[in-house]
Design a protein around this nucleic acid. Structure first.
Lengths: 339, 339
DNA sequence: ACATTGTATGTTAACGATAACATTATCAAT
DNA sequence: ATTGATAATGTTATCGTTAACATACAATGT
């Protein structure tokens, strides 16, 4: 039997109306138990699969969520997606997954398509790198239910699940200052248009300020989020060299730190003796490096769970409020910081 | 404007019929250029988003693919999904992603739901661990378009994209024999009900046989696919101990090898001097271990691409044939084998 | 005997878009 | 002016399901 079996076909085969079949299969009241059984058997034997497309058209609900992430390569986002998936599964939602590949244009396209699909809600980690939020504003105003995670766009009426990047960044920088006494600390930053890039830089600055260390603008080099940009930024930093190299480096995330480590090694320097370095994310590789990387652990799975729970809440409860949900980070002290 | 704008509403606002609006927005012939422009402007200003649900009901095509994977934690499947996503994106398909969590019951449920969603096709990496293929048979007979990848179910009328597990397993085992002269080689196998479990064991046996080494059944221990099962299996192997431990171990995949390495270290043995070990997969961590792991590299991204291409081909071309597509593996020789 | 209640079923219309067919307007050719 | 062809637009029915209302019939109470 083909997958094209419809209620009407079952109805005809049994000599009843389509409505009765619908009622029987949805186990409603007011249907004779014998009829229900007859219908169920027939549906089974004809290989009936309910058509959610038709159902969605009537109910204006698709029971689907759109997930938009900026990349799938590293361990972080898959882990977030696993958390999302788990919650969605339990609440009987299906997931549309799209990878924007760090391109906002592609993200926009993806969101547009997902809205066409009439997803009940959107989970977005933004690839935006400029400061024009009008696209998000318009879709939210247009009634889309959105929850951001990790890379958030704030104050535009959508909830957000992330870690406290600024505070965490400050904490790990302070670890370098108070535990190890470093004073010459550089930062390989992320793009300043992305919230986590800005926040983490700010946390680094906060730490310096709190300990009366002077900020050397020359030692803040902008990378992006991947290994090669970390490598390049570190090379730049090492080649400035007039005033010598820094004691320690705070990288915007672990992939950047991993790239930087390679550059440091190539320059014949050792970690942590010549230069200490710390990251952010706790990439799956970080504990396995020659000199295990001290970093900030972000609970990715939990972040996914929280984001999905919040979104489903927004979808199902009319008066859910806009929230900023922070999931706690933990410092993962390993040896790259000098410990 | 809410997302609930319909063609009819635009039509009313302009005093034309819904059909004209539909034609204008789809840029059909036989519509006055001025009308088209008026319609487009109005649609834009009202924030119209076409409803794919309604469209799908008419066209009986959803332009969506269902992807079912057994796990998302490790790097392999995310990378496959990235390949799938890329191809789907280019061909304008959306992806439903579901994680079966290594549970066949959950996979079955997922497939049923995806069929309800009327996905145009399914990409499946099976979590099946028994030998009853009737579920797959029935959905394929029911007209579902299916392409398996990595963990395939063969000879039931669906195409399959995978590596040649048996041959690759034989090759890496032979590397241990011919390059290093090991003769006491153990195997930590996968579940024998899963194709890759069976095939890789078989490849291991082929290698022994080809070199006239006796197969010691005691040294084939069944693990599953994760670290903890590798650890447990290795402990079992080490504690048999009457005849001493093996020279070398062939693990069914890298996570199992990583678990086993821990067990080996705990027993105070060193790799590769006391026991050499090799894996399969080329996990992102494998090159970063204390003793980098020799393994078989599976081109995950390419596997995803091929699987998606094949599926789209099956969907769009009536007389596409059933194929077994093999993507080539490469040996990643590092130092855990003794090199 | 008859209104009343309740159970089991049927009919119609709707969700939003579009294919297929129908109608009207426009213009050139005779 | 009339015809025919073509361009522009409208109408109806359909996809599969279900809500809302309608009907048929049996059982109950007075």
């Amino acid at each position: 039997m083909s997958s094209e079996v419809t209620l009407k076909q079952i109805a005809e085969a049994l000599g009843v109306s389509a409505m009765t079949v619908s009622r029987a299969l949805n186990d409603r009241d007011n249907v004779d138990e014998k009829t229900k059984q007859r219908v169920r058997n027939k549906a089974e034997s004809m290989g009936y699969t309910p058509n959610r497309v038709a159902k969605s058209l009537v109910s204006r609900k698709t029971h689907t969520l759109g997930v938009v992430i900026p990349e799938i390569t590293h361990a972080f986002f898959p882990e977030v997606v696993r958390g999302i998936e788990e919650v969605a599964y339990k609440s009987d939602y299906q997931l549309f997954l799209t990878n924007a590949n760090e391109l906002f244009s592609r993200e926009k396209e993806a969101i547009e398509t997902l809205r066409s699909q009439r997803v009940d809600g959107l989970l977005i980690s933004s690839s935006l790198t400029h400061e024009d939020y009008s696209f998000y504003e318009s879709i939210i105003e247009g009634g889309a239910k959105v929850v951001f995670f990790d890379r958030c766009i704030e104050d535009i009426g959508a909830s957000c699940v992330s870690v406290n990047d600024r505070e965490s960044s400050q904490k790990i920088t302070e670890h370098l200052i108070t535990e190890h006494g470093y004073t010459q600390i550089a930062h390989l930053s992320g793009p300043q248009k992305v919230s986590i890039g800005k926040e983490r830089l700010q946390g680094y600055k906060d730490a310096l300020e709190a300990h009366n260390l002077e900020l050397n603008e020359e030692w803040v080099i902008q990378a992006e989020f991947k290994e090669d940009t970390g490598y390049d930024a570190m090379i730049k930093l090492l080649e400035k060299g007039r005033e010598g190299h820094p004691d320690a480096v705070v990288a915007v995330n672990d992939p950047v730190a991993i790239g930087a480590i390679e550059a440091i090694k190539e320059h014949g320097l050792t970690i942590p003796d010549d230069i200490a370095i710390v990251g952010f994310t706790d990439d799956i590789r970080s504990s396995l490096l020659d000199v295990p990387l001290t970093t900030v652990r972000q609970p990715a799975y939990e972040m996914g769970e929280q984001a999905a729970e919040k979104l489903i809440n927004v979808i199902e409860d009319e008066d859910a409020t806009v929230e900023k949900i922070e999931v706690p980070t933990t410092l993962k002290i390993r040896s790259s910081c000098g410990c």
